[in-house]
Design a protein around this nucleic acid. Structure first.
Lengths: 347, 347
DNA sequence: TATTTAGCTTGACATTTGTGACCCAATGGA
DNA sequence: TCCATTGGGTCACAAATGTCAAGCTAAATA
């Protein structure tokens, strides 16, 4: 394969000037170039299979059709890449490509990442965190269309796209309420994560609105074993020591791994899921939640959608030509994924 | 923030010509530019914080310092992105960035992906599959430095980087052999995957070299539940129906999810891991393998290393200026990850 | 003093594209 | 006949860079 054909090659081949080729390729031919010559040029272009050199085009137009993405860690969690996949495909459809730099959570690298992207003349910037957290946006993000994805600016100067965790927590509770449960337990995870706080807020709101007494969250870790231990305390018969402790018929878990731990305890104790205990997970940790028996009903984190939304927003900016945008928070809903781990409580 | 500074701006600011600036920035100043002017130019560059516009540079040099990656699916498996992470960081260190396009396993998109990347003048190409498989390389990959990662060309015209699955299967067996096990079971997964075949080949070789009788693989699926079911058959006491069936003291599993299923059965049957049964997984499915109790000893797939290796190879090509490379297969070893699920067998 | 030479500096070109300004021929109207 | 208009097409510029060849100044040599 020789050198790529240039517009000059096409012009020579068709016996016209390079400008004529350019006009045809950019849809400005009507009224400038005769119909027959248009066809001639088009034929020549096809024969040499000419496609404009997008580097030269970028230089001239001052637009690279490229969006820079700086991320925490591509391979971090189990849903790693879902956000990127959403962003990538939304961008590609609009003729844009992504330049992704992974800082591996080392803040020192962030500065280098942004200046590298700026040198490359990206049209817009995204900062994406792999788990929801506050993040002060880099200086480079002002003066170029930018959004934060799955993270938010404490100062509120930049738009941020985050999951609607409050609604998510509410939805998780509502799944059980709708099925008719009243004895509900809540394993909340631990730490001061903002996601956890908001989920708990939503959960409490739903319980209270349903007219049930407040439910105290039981703090657990985030792993299978943490769910296992917590469920042991929660479900095992204590021999009648504590007075009239009611065993819950449904439980909302901090994430799907914890939910799996609960499932395992049920197996051990001879409790059937969902007949004896309904379980709701969180995150839609796919290979896990889909392959348990029964499948885990869970509230999904909308990673893919956040990625798509981020790009949509930026493309809007680019079309309208705005340089700097006001801040604001876009909440993306957390859809409920119904599988088989929830049922009507036994009488 | 105004327009980015150009080399002309720096030249004006320092009172010299643009060429002088260019010389200084590219280390060709000695013997061409007086020392004091060099300092002057450097100062001006720093003050305007000038960095060369890499689009213009790319156009001029016919090199974009960009490598195109076409992939099956970024968010496919649980290790999705590890390969990309390795590639990305290796590239970044050398001043290259990655342009990644995800075809979502739809072959129709592949053509568009490659031509898009070619238009963008990428210096090199990678095709990466998320699970090991044969893949006929796209025409675009000839004529530009290219490699296949985690996939191989049936015609053998292109270099491919794949895990050394034979050695991996051998290593899995060897872990148990080294610990002194002789009663070993093998849950092999199912389907005609090339990875499985090679692992089995390696497993059998190790067993035979150890002087043990051949072990028949038990086909299972790939999920937690498949491991659960298989282990039930394998471990449950059948009440003495089959004559003198020896219970294995160690088991090699097709992947970590299957291994988890086996662990669960042990819990149910009251068998302790690793005292009563040693378990070896495969894949190093991280959040899972690390958080079981005990941690799962497993053979890791070298996704990260394959990504790094792919980039190293391509950077070598680019440095040497070769346009087309001969085919060949690079095997990347699968390292053993020792955790707690293997012990010396009980007497 | 004339001429070479070394050191330093700059002008000009090439990379490829899109586009505003321009040119030419022909036609229509005055 | 002359001017203006218009359709059809081209020239030249701008985008920012790297580099080669040429130019210039001052010192050094014959």
């Amino acid at each position: 394969m020789a050198r790529k054909a240039t517009s000059q090659d096409v012009a020579d081949h068709a016996g016209v000037s390079r400008s004529a080729v350019s006009f045809v390729m950019n849809g400005r031919a009507d009224g400038n170039i005769a119909k027959d010559k248009q066809l001639l040029i088009l034929a020549a272009a096809k024969e040499l299979n000419y496609t404009p050199n997008s580097v030269a085009r970028s230089l001239q137009a001052q637009r690279t059709h490229t969006i820079g993405v700086v991320t925490d860690s591509i391979a971090g969690g189990p849903f790693a890449g879902k956000l990127l996949q959403g962003a990538s495909s939304a961008a590609f459809q609009a003729g844009y490509l992504l330049l992704v730099i992974d800082t591996a959570s080392e803040d020192i690298r962030e500065d280098g990442a942004f200046t590298t992207l700026l040198n490359r003349q990206v049209d817009a910037l995204v900062f994406a965190a792999m788990s929801l957290r506050a993040h002060r946006p880099h200086a480079a993000m002002h003066g170029t269309p930018s959004v934060l994805a799955n993270s938010f600016d404490p100062a509120g100067t930049l738009r941020s796209i985050i999951p609607d965790e409050v609604a998510g927590g509410r939805a998780a509770a509502q799944i059980l309420l709708d099925a008719g449960h009243t004895a509900i337990a809540y394993l909340s995870g631990t730490g001061e994560l903002v996601a956890t706080e908001r989920r708990t807020e939503g959960f409490n709101a739903a319980i209270s609105e349903a007219g049930l007494p407040a439910i105290k969250a039981r703090e657990t870790g985030w792993e299978i074993n943490d769910g296992f231990v917590a469920a042991m305390h929660l479900l095992a018969d204590d021999g009648g020591h504590s007075p009239k402790r009611e065993r819950p018929t449904g439980v909302v878990c901090a994430n799907d791994r914890v939910a799996l731990g609960v499932m395992l305890v049920c197996g051990q104790l001879g409790l059937r899921v969902p007949e004896d205990l309904s379980i709701v997970g969180y995150d839609d940790d796919e290979p896990l939640a889909r392959t348990t028996v029964p499948g885990l009903t869970t509230v999904a984190l909308p990673h893919r959608e956040m990625g798509e939304k981020a790009i949509e927003l930026l493309l809007g900016d680019l079309r309208s030509g705005d340089r700097d945008q006001a801040g604001g928070t876009i909440l993306v809903p957390c859809p409920v994924v119904m599988r088989g781990s929830v049922a009507v409580p036994a009488q």
